[in-house]
Amino acid sequence: MNPIENLSLRSISVWKRNRDVFFRTWKTNFVPSFLEPVLYLLAMGMGFGVLISEDLRLHDIFVSYIEFLAPGLVAISIMYGAFFECTYGSFVRMHYQKTFDAMIATPLSIEDVIVGEILWGATKSFLNATIVLIVISLFGLTNLPGLIFVPFIAFLGGLMFASIAMLFTSITPNMDSFNWPFFLLITPMFLFSGTFFPMYVLPEWGQLIALALPLTHCSVLVRDLCFNYFDLADVGALIYIAMLTVVAFFASIHLMKKRLIN
């Protein structure tokens, strides 16, 4: 049986519904995602970074700590954008607002609804990451033309994190249970995915674990692009993101159908 035989372009109307809600309150939605990276840059870069006198190695060049950190903030915003949206956001719509029930009484299928949600989650990553990218660019921490490709990476990475998030949403018994994936997966990724320090400072086993984490591949891609690099490791990162997205996507559709169709 084809797991996505019931998928159609109508999923765009689900995406549009979420977009309309988002832009209805765009001020409260945009200001934090704009100010947060500024705070991080100030605290981590200019405060904490001052203590780090040594430059960090990146391929064949050496960069200051704040230059290293900035692309990491973009990668983090990719992860949080989609993950928050497709865990807490989707769960509220599914469980409390019964929005999904209303949707599947129309010609929309459950597959359409889930795909619309995932597309919207990826869009949140795209928007958040683009804002952070603009901020760090204003600080002169990116390079043309590489930075132009970063929003595209943000959307791809967003699809991956949205699909993973939807997987948790499909099995979570209640809203509080989202603490588990956040505590066991998101926070470790936030800290150990080449975001705040280069992976080469970790012991070998630590590097191997970091390489298994989804966010590592986003931060590798974003940082390389911000410094106009692109090599085999980046191709590998893209393949990793594509494969994990496909697996998580099909698994989440399967489990969501199990949860919602009865």
Binding site: R17, V21, R24, Q97, T99, A102, A105, P107
Partner: peptide
């Protein structure tokens, strides 16, 4: 589903609109 209208028992109006 394209040809029928459903008014469910539970209120599932969209609270954001």
């Amino acid at each position: 589903k394209n040809l029928i209208g459903v008014a469910p028992q539970d209120n599932n109006l969209d609270p954001d609109f």
